[in-house]
């Protein structure tokens, strides 16, 4: 009996393996480029009021909005970045000025702002966040709370330098 070392099946398998290797090889440089910037979310900019003031807390508080801000590429935390936050809460609608406020990221690029409880509006319990200070590309986020009873919500920014 002769041993067939190269038949159609093994050839196809080898070719397939080669394609996979080549494709993953192509992907490696993309990974080396690092952290991709966060794209703006649909509807994120709705009812945005530019220039919300930096505040200790929005209204009476009781709900926490938190997150991080990092630089695209190397993922370095970005301190001192201004994040604007607004939502439909127990104290006002998204369009009310009193529902808007801003906070700055700390040395670790983290932010945390107390605000009134977010309540479902337009069908979903959600918040809005904006980075719009010019040094990086503008990003609008619209995170949705997994449950309307949640007392906190997170949103994370990866910003692309202009």
């Amino acid at each position: 009996m002769t041993m067939v070392l190269i038949n159609r099946r093994s050839l196809l398998a080898a070719a397939g393996g080669l394609v996979v290797t080549a494709a993953s090889g192509l992907r490696v440089p993309a990974r080396a480029k690092g952290l991709a910037p966060t794209p703006s979310m649909r509807g994120g900019a709705n009812n945005y009021r530019p220039g919300a003031p930096v505040v200790e807390r929005i209204g009476g508080g009781g709900f926490w909005m938190s997150g991080t801000v990092r630089r695209a590429g190397d993922g370095a935390p970005l301190p001192g970045q201004r994040i604007q936050i607004w939502a439909h809460t127990t104290e006002g609608s998204e369009r009310d000025a009193r529902s808007h406020g801003a906070t700055l990221t700390d040395a670790n690029g983290a932010f945390r702002l107390e605000m009134p409880q977010i309540v479902p509006a337009f069908g979903q319990p959600h918040g809005h966040l904006a980075y719009d200070s010019g040094q990086f590309e503008t990003v609008f986020l619209r995170p949705v709370m997994p449950s309307a009873g949640d007392r906190a919500l997170e949103a994370h920014f990866v910003l692309q330098p202009v």
Partner: peptide
């Protein structure tokens, strides 16, 4: 709904 929040309804 439009009167309540125009951008949401336009979307």
């Amino acid at each position: 709904l439009w009167v309540t929040s125009p951008p949401d309804v336009i979307d």
